[in-house]
Design a protein around this nucleic acid. Structure first.
Lengths: 336, 336
DNA sequence: ATTGGAGCGCGAAACAGTTCGCTTTTAATA
DNA sequence: TATTAAAAGCGAACTGTTTCGCGCTCCAAT
């Protein structure tokens, strides 16, 4: 039904080759150019990307695999990525891994079968073994936010250890000594942030007792429950570092619900830029990731891998710094 | 590089047609079947969906357009949809409309150009005029959550008016007379929910003064700010109906922050199933949508439109009922 | 033994583009 | 005006499938 390049050939009398050349930005005589453009206009011609894909061996599709599409973080990432890819005429195929390693493996195969030109991944697996099929098919992969413990791929994210270190330092500088952390010890980002917390404490000569380290899988619930537990301790912490978006939200909710407030009753510093942070008062100190930059860099790297077919010699890793955004949720323990 | 059907031909001595027939589930002599299967195994053959798409004129891709991919609701929808589509071997191409009508228009064209087999849409436009190109290309479209004011397409969602009516009734039954609403008056769902609020009030003979109707675009901020304003009134409401996910979250946060609590100081009933609802206590009354059912129904309708090429004579609209989930956030005003 | 028909298999022609190598045209230069 | 290099155009082959119509084989029924 839709017009093909052959219809244009019939209408203009030119050959397929010439029309194709025009379509791909080649040089064509002005009068022929006009002829073709008129025909395109008239016939509402649009190039059939599928046919083109068959011969160029490109689908103009990239796959995005996220560990959990329902998480706020994924939504934000997807937002920026889809914007970047659209600018370049690429479609974005999404796969949700439901935080399940097996599903993630399947997703990769699925995308490969769909002949995506590249893959952007927020992996749930800590091991990168399952990515091999992509490497074999020489489909470039760029990791976002998390990387693997046992294999290297291009990566874009932040320096999580450093971000956490700096966040915790903010509490230390304000003379807190009893500082707790709520984060994940089973996910890439959480593990690094935990390390940041520990080294900040160690370096300041402060104890980091187990009871102040609330660990589990990052979730609203973890933040909520842990904060309640921390505040119910005989010797509660005076400051708490919350390790990600969901835990921060949960923690805030818990403090609120107990009828306590920050920074009077408890000092807090959270992670990731939530909508809530725009409206909750007093404003909460936050370690925020430059989402837009991360995504645009990841896309940039992916695109260049796609375009220059040549094998990347060595993976590139880009770590942005997190911004420690000022709030009023930390009290100076030496004042009054 | 990857094996083609021709490699199988060479290895088995069969013709392309026979192999293709096997691949598509046709009948083949047992010995040939075995031959082919061995070759497939040996050569790691996988059908090239692009080439297949060219001749069958199907991409095995569907497009999903959401008004805002960063919203919690979209994430949840995407979660269920991607699950359903994967079961059927379809890829999901996402487009974020950034709540922008112009972008949404472009997204549609983009998807059409990518030759998707069907489109699932959570539209931002109230008017369906921009969907015409899809209709012309006879690409089926199913609307989710919101439909148009001026044109009909297949639709799956809930009866928003009724859901709101029932939610507000819960407050009325508990003898509240001063009931406020926080919702959207510019989005499809909010408009219907507002209507539900108004008719419940009207039918109960209760006044619904303007000061109790806080309207704007659904957002966390709307809920947060409006709730604070409502509670600061000289004559504050005793019950509040919150019109969606974000506003509910914002409203809860505001109550918490003011040091108030439900149901003692204010009775509330919210909308949509948030993670928070799993942990916030006392539990909040909620109108929850059956997300899984909505998505699976929408996909089912879309798939049948795709398979039976025949023109759908008349659009089908499926409205599920929302579940009013019990909580402890409503106080009976006649007690003590 | 003959006939029919079902069941399979095959060759060739699509599908809608790109690309290669060659020929023709164009315009510049001598 | 002739020569020539550069520019533009062309035909044909190719991408990896599906599908159409025809022919062959084989078994059961007449």
């Amino acid at each position: 039904m839709p017009a093909t390049i052959r219809d244009i050939k019939n209408r203009t009398g030119l050959s397929l080759a010439t029309i194709s050349k025009y379509l791909n930005g080649g040089n064509v005589l002005p009068k022929n150019k006009k002829l073709i453009e008129e025909a395109i206009e008239e016939l509402h011609y649009e190039v059939n990307e599928i046919a083109r894909g068959l011969v160029t061996n490109q689908s103009k599709l990239i796959g995005v695999m996220v560990y959990d599409i329902e998480s706020f973080f994924s939504g934000s990432i997807l937002h920026y990525i889809s914007y970047e890819m659209r600018k370049r005429g690429y479609g974005v195929l999404i796969c949700d891994s439901y935080n399940n390693e097996e599903v993630e493996k399947q997703n990769l195969k699925f995308l490969l079968n769909k002949k995506v030109d590249g893959i952007l991944m927020l992996p749930v697996n800590l091991s990168g073994a399952f990515v091999r099929p992509a490497r074999e098919a020489s489909v470039p992969v760029v990791l976002i936010d998390r990387s693997f413990t046992d294999d290297e791929y291009d990566f874009v994210g932040i320096d999580n250890r450093m971000a956490a270190f700096r966040a915790v330092s903010r509490l230390i500088e304000n003379h807190h000594r009893k500082i707790a952390v709520i984060t994940s010890d089973v996910e890439y980002t959480g593990m690094a942030r935990l390390e940041g917390y520990r080294s900040a404490m160690y370096q300041a000569g402060l104890p980091a007792p187990e009871k102040y380290q609330r660990l589990g899988r990052h979730s609203f619930e973890l933040g909520y429950v842990s904060m309640k537990q921390l505040l119910a301790l005989d010797d509660p912490p005076t400051g708490v570092f919350l390790g990600n978006y969901e835990t921060t939200l949960g923690g805030i909710m818990a403090v609120n619900e107990l009828g306590l407030s920050w920074p009077e009753d408890i000092s807090i510093i959270g992670f990731d830029d939530l909508i809530v942070s725009k409206v909750v008062r007093p404003k909460i100190w936050m370690a925020v990731q430059p989402m837009g930059e991360i995504c645009s860099k990841a896309v940039e790297i992916l695109m260049s891998s796609i375009e220059e077919k040549k094998e990347q010699i060595t993976p590139v890793k880009v770590h942005f710094g997190a911004l420690i955004r000022e709030g009023s949720s930390i009290r100076d323990m030496e004042e009054t």
